[in-house]
Each structure stands twice: as C-alpha cells, then as structure tokens.
Design a binder for these strands. Sequence first.
RNA 1: GGGGAGGUGGCAGAGCGGGCAAAGGCACCAGACUGUAAAUCUGGCGUCUACGACUACGGAGGUUCGAAUCCUCCCCUCCCCA
Length: 402
Amino acid sequence: MNVDQQLSVMERGMVALIERSELREKLLRGTPLRVKLGVDPTAADLHLGFTVVLRKLRQFQELGHQAVLIIGSYTAQVGDPSGRDKTRPQLSEAQVLANAEQYLSQACRVLDRTRLEVRYNGEWFSRLGFMDVIRLLAKTTVARTLEREDFTQRMQAGTAIHLHELIYPLMQGYDSVMINADVELGGNDQTFNLMVGRDLQRDAGQEPQICLTMPLLEGLDGVRKMSKSYGNYVGITDAPHDMFGKIMSIGDGLMWKYFELLTDVPLEQVGAWQAGVRAGSAHPMEIKKTLAGTIVAQYHGGDAATAARAEFERVFSQHALPDEMPDYTLREGGAELDVVRVLIEAQLAPSTSEARRLIQQGAVSIDEVKVSALRVPLPAAASFVLRAGKRRFLRVTRASEI
RNA sequence: GGGGAGGUGGCAGAGCGGGCAAAGGCACCAGACUGUAAAUCUGGCGUCUACGACUACGGAGGUUCGAAUCCUCCCCUCCCCA
C-alpha cells in the first residue's frame, strides 16, 4: 500500500492525529514504525470499548508496522486519572500481574500475537531511583499538569486529587521514550498523556511520537462510555448469543458508530445503509442484525454468529424459547416445587427477596404458564422450562428421571 | 499549624432525637406496548426461616425507654488562612 492508502486506513474512525504531516514523513521513509499502545490491566476482562484501539493497532500490524503493547505493570499501580472523577483504587503488583496474563490472551483475539512486542513497564520503572523520579518530575509544571479538564472538574467539584495521580502522565510518556515510539495510540481521553510523551521524547533527543486518538465507544445505554463499572458493556468473551443480544439492544443511532469502530465494513456501505434507513427503504433492525452478526463472527466465528442470530430471532421476534439454556437438576421430589429456591440456586435471582418479587410481578413462568405462588404443584413432566423475565431461562430436570 | 464545612442506599442528594429500611431523582428489575431498543405507562427496588425478624446512614464508644439524627475519640474529604 502506498502512503496515502495507509493513511486512510489509519484515519478510519479516529478523533485526532497529531501531526499528520509528521506521520506522512515517517511513512515515506518506508521503514516499519514502532506503534505503541499502553494498557493498564486494572481488570482482567476486555470489552468491545477497548477493542476500538486494539483494532487500530491491529490495522497497523497489517500494514507492516511493529506493534508494541506496553503492559502497565507499574502504571496500573498508580492509576490513570484520565477521564476519572475520582481516584482509582491502587492495585497490588500481584493483582496486576495476574490480570495481565488474561488480558494479554484476550487482547490477542484482536492482535496478531506473532508480530507483537510485549513489554511490561516495570522493566524500567523498577530500576529508577528516587533522584531519577525527581528529575522526571522536574520536566513539567504544576500548572501544565492541572490544566486538563478532568483535574479542573475535580478541583471544582471539590473531590480529592492525590499527588501520585499527577505523575501518571509522566510515567506514560516515559514509556514512549523507553521503547522509542513512533506512534502512540490511545482513547480520546488519553490525549494529554500522549502529548507528554512527545515532550519527553524531544527532551531525550528522540523524534516526537505521532499521537493518534480514537473515540470512546458509548456503551449499550448509548450515553456513557462503555465500561464495566457502568454495566453497559459487551465483553469479548461473552457467549455468542449474549453478545448478539447486547448489540441488538443499542439504540438505532449508535449502530453506525459501532460499524465504523468495531467492524471492517467499508464506510461507503455503512453510509448507504444509513441513507436507506433515513429514506425508509431499509429496516434498521435488519441492519443491526448484520452489525451484531459481524461482531459475533469476529470473536466466535461465522457459524456461531449465524446460530446467535437464529436464536435471537426465535427468542425475541417470535417469543419462543432459546435453543440452549442452563440445566438444573431438581434434587428432591415431593408434590410441590419450591420456585424461590430453584430461582436462587440456578442464579436466576440474586436473593430470596428478588425471587419473590419476580414471582409477584408475574415474571416467572413454567413452560410458558405464569407462576402465581411461591410454591406450586410439581409439574408432571420429567423436564420443564422455568423462565424469569424476558431473558433468563432454565431447563429443570428431575433427578429421579435421569 | 489556625479556622470553617462535610462523610447517608449503585450514583447524585434530602433527613438532623421516635411515624426512617431512610423523600424526590437517576440507574436498575418486572409487566404492558414495540422491529430489538428507545420513548411512554404501571409496579418494584437491603436481607431473611417473611403480616414478623435481622442488618444498615465513615469507624469505635457513650447519653437516651428510643439515635442517621445528641456527646466523645478516631479515620477520611473539601474550603479559607498560615
């Protein structure tokens, strides 16, 4: 691919590229670029929001560049303040290392592991002495550190900002120096941190890195960014039908962005669909199914995607039962079925109170017949389907019948 | 170091001696409606061996028949001054 074609791949979905002209120059040299992405393994499970930037890194790999994934074994213990309205909890090194392993294996569902350089930043941070840290701190000023929006907001809101949070950007920038990055990728909220890398590299006599930022993906609620703590995420290890269903639950307006950031569907095609929906000639739900199917196929393969789609149509469009559901074996017999107990043991309800509520609200049914009491006569069938709400199903079998 | 204001349910935030498992809101769950969703309406929303009991309003003590509410100490946060 020539330089302009490469640039157009790189620019898909991005928010900002600093500086485009510098990137062009680097590309013209023809040598592979060192493209850095830093991640803090604060949690072990990845979600689609994070794949936005991972996918971008993958694109660089496919263009022949060297991807460098920095595992923030030290920075995770500090906690990135970017976009936060309060201090992050500090993780222990053991937690971080445990998370890192799982994180890496999940990230490699997107990245090409064989062409990936993985570095833990403890490699260099563990060797710094206190004086080295002081020298690093001397490279910036209080005013510059505090000018960021997230800190400003916290100052105004009167929430605490701890000193260690202030040095986070310097640490991230230092990573760039250590690996001699040509390009660093990050979420839009990372802009400040990425820019610090440029300064530190310049100071160290290196060519400043190019900063390429990607949008933060809105979660299923369509409002807040996708995040585990908001519960509006799609995990990349989610089961195919879950993944499909979750994606189907996003608002129609959001799906275009999902197409752009989470799939390789050509933007011309996406634009055509969008126009079709606006004109009334295309059905938004059909297109959303395509989106969901495409994403599921990336993580689980085409067959699983087809099955997930069929399942979705069965359960939601035709209100039928799903193909597969968890099994539960009824231990004791007797004339009555303790519905509450079963709901809890099968984790269809988190507490006795919740189970009772579900029953009282008419959300629970046995073989599609509403359950109206906490205990009901045991169905005659050897196996029956217990349902709680729209999407929680359970196949109950009697132990004696097995 | 001095002075002031605070810490309440997932979040934001009322309450300031009994009627408080704690208003109203957001989020969430369920039902209705629908193309999934959204929107809207209705109900729910600590736990349990369930018309009663237990746990809970930063932590530990105390006053009181009774404390989220009063007192003491401790921890934490914010603001002003130095």
